[in-house]
Design a protein around this nucleic acid. Structure first.
Lengths: 345, 345
DNA sequence: TTGTAGGCGTTATCAC
DNA sequence: GTGATAACGCCTACAA
C-alpha cells in the first residue's frame, strides 16, 4: 500500500480510503490512485483490515454433509445472499458427528466469524457453551430445536412427520412401517420417528413396525437391503414410510426386482424430496422441504442481523420454512387433495 | 491473551508458545496456561496470527456449482485432506461463469490463500493474469487444460469422450447422436464433443447428429424434452451419447414413457457416473469419473506443495485421475469386456 | 479532502 | 525456558 501511496503522491490513508470508496476522496485523486493500484497489481490484505476493523467478513457455516444435494443447495442459496453484502462463507462439514461439530466450531471461532450458521441435529454440551460465549449471533438451521441457542430457520421434523403419517392414515393405510437408523439419538431421524409414533398412537394404531437399520444418514443401499428381505421386514405391511428419500428409493428398487407392485401391493413414502424420488418409477410420495429457501431465509436473516438500522428486538427468533406433502405414484391417492406435478407435465 | 498471561504470571509470548505447543515451554507452565485458557474461554484470533506469520491457513477453492454431487464430493474429499494439516477451505462457486470466476479469484486473493484450486472450464484473460501475479500455487481441476496456469489434477474430457465413442463403435453402433449444450465454448462439454467427433471421423462415420440444446450444465429436464421429441431428434439413430448423465437420464425417462425400448430400440450413454445413472432402470452406461479421488489427490498435492521438506522440482505438474467406462443396461453389451456391478450384486 | 499517530492481536527475533 | 521489542498491513480517531 505504501508503494501505491508513493506513486500517487499521497499518504497511505488516502489510498485506503480510495480503495474502500468511502466518498471522502476527491474524484481525481481516487481515479489516479485506482489506476496505480491496477498497474501495480496491488491487492489489499483483508486480514490486516479484519484486525483493524474487527470485522472478519466471515459467516461460519456448518453442514452435515455436502454429499447431499439438500445441504449443498442451501449453502449455495445462502452464499448468493451473502455475496451481495460482501460476506464470505467459511464452510465446514460435520459428517453428522457432534464431536466433529465441536471441533469445527472451535476452529471457526478463531476466524472471528460475524455469524455462525449450523444445522441442528443435537450439539455437544461444549459446543453449546462455545456458541454462547462466542458473543456472535448463532443460527440453527433445518430443525427447530426445543431449546435453541439463538435464531432458528427451518421446520419441525416431528410435526412434518406427524402430518405425513396422519395423511397416510387418512388415505386408509393402517399397517404402516417406519424405517429409520440405529443410534439416531437427537438427530432429525429421531424427530421424524417421534412424529410418526405420535400420529399412529393418536389414531390407535400399532407402532410395532419400527425398523431400525444402518447408521445416519441412511443410504439408498441400506434401503435396498431392507427391501430385499421383504418377508422379514414388511410382511403384512401396507405402507413403508422411510426416514428419507434415499432409503425409500432403495426399498422401491428392491421391491421392483422382486416383482412387488407399488403402490398396489404396498406403498412407499420418503422424506426430503430428493431429486431421485421425483424421477423414480413409480415416483415417490414424500415430504417436500425447500433447501434453497432455508439458505435464502438464513441469508436474509443475517443481513438484518448485521445491518445496524434495525433494532434487534424487531428481528424474529424463528423463521418458519414449512414443508408440504408431495403425493406421487408410490402411494394410493384416493383422497389426495393436492397432486404433485410430474416432470413430463 | 494479555489476561491469560497475567493470570498465569507469564508473558504473552509464553502464552503464545504454549498455545501453539511448539515444545519450548516447560510442561508445568504449559499445563497451567492451558488451564487458564480454558477457564477464561480464550480463543486466539487467527487473523492477527495470519498478519504476523504471513500464513493464512486458507485454500481458496472454486467449484462450478455445489448443486452437483460431483463437485460437492470432491470438495469434501479435499477438505478431509486439508483438515489434517490445519488448512481451511474458502469456497466459492462460479455458477459456470468465467466472469463470476474472475470476481471470485479477486476477492479470494484478499484473503491471501496459500493455494488456489479451481476448475478448468476456460478462464478470462484477467483471471489468468490475476492467478499468475498472485504468487501462489494454482491447481486446476477436472480438465487438463492445453496451457495450464499451474498444476493440474484430472483427466482429458476429450480423450475420455473419444474413448467412449470408440468403444461404442466397437460395439457395432454406427449412427450415434451426441447431445450437448448450446454456447459451450471452452467448457468440458465442448471438449467432450470434440472427442466424439474425433473418434467418429477416424472411423469414417457421420457426425451430423450433433444435437445442441439448453445451456451448460444440461439438466435432466433438458434431456427429457429432447427425448420427448424423439422423431425430430433421434429418428434413425442407434445410440444417444449425452454430455452428462443428467440429460441421459432425462432422455431415458422420456423414451420409457413413449414405449421405446432401451437398449433394444436405441442405446443411451451418459458421462459422469452420477448416482441417478446407477439406479435408473435400465441403468445407464457412462464414463465414470472419480470426484473424491480428484479432491483427495488435490489435497495431497497441496500437502506436498506446502511442506518444505520437498524440492518443488520433485512435484509433478500434472496428476492424472483417469476415467473408466462403465457398461450397464442401457447399451447392448455384446463385446463388453468389463461389466459394471449392479447395486443388487 | 488529506495527513499523522497509534493500535488491532498475534508472532519473529534476539537477548537473557 | 522465558521475556522484551518490533513488526505484520490495515484502519480509527483526530487534527489540519
Amino acid at each position: 500500500m505504501e508503494d501505491v501511496a508513493q506513486a500517487a503522491g499521497v499518504s497511505r490513508m488516502t489510498v485506503s480510503r480510495a480503495l474502500r470508496n468511502d466518498g471522502s476522496v476527491s474524484v481525481a485523486t481516487r481515479a489516479r490512485i485506482m489506476k496505480i493500484v491496477a498497474k501495480l497489481n496491488y491487492v489489499p490484505d483483508q486480514s490486516a483490515g479484519t484486525l483493524s476493523t474487527r470485522r472478519s467478513g466471515f459467516v461460519a457455516t456448518l453442514v452435515p454433509s455436502l454429499n447431499n444435494l439438500h445441504f449443498a443447495e442451501s449453502v449455495q442459496a445462502l452464499n448468493v445472499e451473502l455475496e451481495a453484502i460482501g460476506l464470505q462463507i467459511l464452510l465446514g462439514h460435520t459428517a453428522y458427528s457432534t464431536e466433529r461439530e465441536e471441533n469445527l466450531v472451535e476452529s471457526m471461532l478463531k476466524r472471528r466469524p460475524e455469524v455462525i450458521v449450523l444445522p441442528f441435529d443435537g450439539h455437544s454440551r461444549r459446543t453449546v457453551k462455545l456458541l454462547k460465549q462466542a458473543n456472535v449471533p448463532v443460527i440453527e438451521q433445518w430443525e427447530r430445536p426445543q431449546r435453541p441457542v439463538g435464531y432458528t430457520v427451518g421446520f419441525s421434523n416431528r410435526d412434518a412427520s406427524r402430518q405425513m403419517t396422519e395423511a397416510l392414515i387418512a388415505k386408509g393405510y393402517r399397517k404402516i412401517a417406519f424405517v429409520s437408523e440405529i443410534e439416531d439419538a437427537w438427530t432429525r431421524g429421531a424427530a421424524r420417528r417421534a412424529g410418526f409414533e405420535e400420529a399412529m398412537q393418536a389414531a390407535g394404531l400399532s407402532t410395532r413396525q419400527m425398523i431400525r437399520y444402518g447408521s445416519p444418514p441412511m443410504s439408498i443401499e441400506d434401503g435396498y437391503q431392507l427391501g430385499s428381505d421383504f418377508k422379514k421386514y414388511f410382511n403384512d405391511i401396507e405402507c413403508i414410510f422411510c426416514v428419507s428419500d434415499a432409503p425409500a428409493f432403495g426399498v422401491l428398487s428392491a421391491l421392483k426386482v422382486q416383482g412387488i407392485q407399488v403402490p398396489d401391493d404396498i406403498a412407499v413414502v420418503g422424506f426430503g424430496n430428493f431429486e431421485v424420488s421425483r424421477f423414480a418409477s413409480p415416483s415417490i410420495s414424500t415430504v417436500e422441504v425447500d433447501p434453497a429457501r432455508i439458505g435464502r431465509e438464513t441469508g436474509r436473516l443475517i443481513r438484518r442481523l448485521l445491518s445496524d438500522d434495525e433494532s434487534p428486538d424487531d428481528i424474529p427468533g424463528h423463521i418458519a420454512v414449512d414443508v408440504r406433502l408431495s403425493w406421487r405414484e408410490s402411494t394410493r391417492n384416493a383422497d389426495a387433495a393436492q397432486t404433485d406435478t410430474e416432470p413430463d407435465a
